[in-house]
Amino acid sequence: MTQMMTEQDAANSELIAFRLGAQEFCLDIMSVRDIRGWTPTTPLPHSSQYVKGVINLRGAVLPVVDLAARLGFSPAEPSARHVIIITQVGNQTIGLLVDAVSDILTVDSGSIQATPNVASELARAFMKGVIAMEGRMISLIALDSVLTRDQAGQGLPN
């Protein structure tokens, strides 16, 4: 069974918006598997500083990445208000620790602007673009870049 997509459907993306400190970010909703409240993690020895540890998710061991620390911000001090966004990239499932999920957005691809050239190479590698919407500036995360092993070092387990 195939579904016909209109040109407008193809041009629109659904994104999940979340906060890290005072900044808003978003990622493609198709890569999100679940959103859970903060659960304390079990630390992993010799992992990268942005890997908070692992949690048990329905019998599977899942690494949790402090997205603020991964993006170069101050590490999060997790509390009951924090959430873990369970994401899937390829065959890898990872939890992203964020301050809060704020919105589900529908944007057309024309409203996503390129990451400014004044950003560092690393910042441009992690960002697909920036969305100016309703007086907000929302950075679109390139989830595959955030989670790749060669940029992440050896901190993320398989």
Rank of each mutant, 00 (worst) to 15 (best):
Trp38Cys: 01
Arg33Gly: 00
Met30Asp: 10
Gly53Phe: 06
Leu71Met: 11
Ser79Glu: 09
Pro43Thr: 01
Glu24Cys: 04
Met30Ile: 00
Gly21Thr: 03
Leu20Val: 03
Asp9Pro: 15
Arg19His: 13
Ala11Arg: 15
Ala68Gly: 11
Ser31Gly: 02
Pro63Tyr: 04
Ser31Trp: 00
Asp66Thr: 01
Pro45Phe: 02
Leu62Ala: 02
Pro43Met: 00
Ala68Glu: 11
Ala60Glu: 02
Glu7Ala: 14
Ala80Ser: 13
Leu27Cys: 11
Leu67Val: 02
His82Ser: 09
Ile29Thr: 06
Ile16Ser: 12
Lys52Glu: 05
Pro45Trp: 03
Pro63Phe: 00
His46Pro: 08
Pro63Met: 00
Ala22Glu: 13
Ser13Asp: 13
Ser31Cys: 02
Asp28Thr: 00
Asp28Asn: 11
Ala17Met: 12
Glu7Pro: 14
Val32Ser: 07
Ala10Gln: 15
Val54Ser: 05
His46Ser: 13
Asn56Gln: 03
Phe73His: 14
Arg81Glu: 14
Val54Asn: 05
Val32Pro: 10
Met5Pro: 13
Gly53Ile: 00
Gly72Ile: 05
Ser74Asn: 12
Ile55Met: 06
Gly37Ser: 07
Gln49Ala: 07
Ser31Pro: 01
Leu27Tyr: 07
Pro40Met: 00
Phe18Thr: 05
Pro75Gly: 12
Ala22Trp: 13
Glu24His: 08
Glu7His: 14
Leu71Phe: 11
Arg36Ile: 08
Thr6Ala: 14
Pro40Glu: 05
Val65Ser: 03
Phe25Met: 11
Gly21Arg: 12
Leu44Lys: 04
Ala69Met: 09
Ala80Arg: 10
Asp28Gln: 08
His46Tyr: 09
Arg58Thr: 03
Val61Phe: 05
Ile16Arg: 12
Gly37Cys: 03
Pro75Met: 08
Ser74Ile: 04
Val65Glu: 02
Asp66His: 04
Lys52Gly: 01
Leu71Val: 07
Arg58Tyr: 05
Pro78Leu: 03
Arg36Val: 07
Glu77Cys: 09
Thr42Pro: 08
Glu7Phe: 13
Arg81Asn: 09
Phe73Val: 07
Asp9Trp: 15
Ala68Ser: 13
Phe18Tyr: 08
His46Cys: 02
Val54Glu: 05
Glu24Tyr: 09
Gly72Phe: 10
Pro43Gln: 04
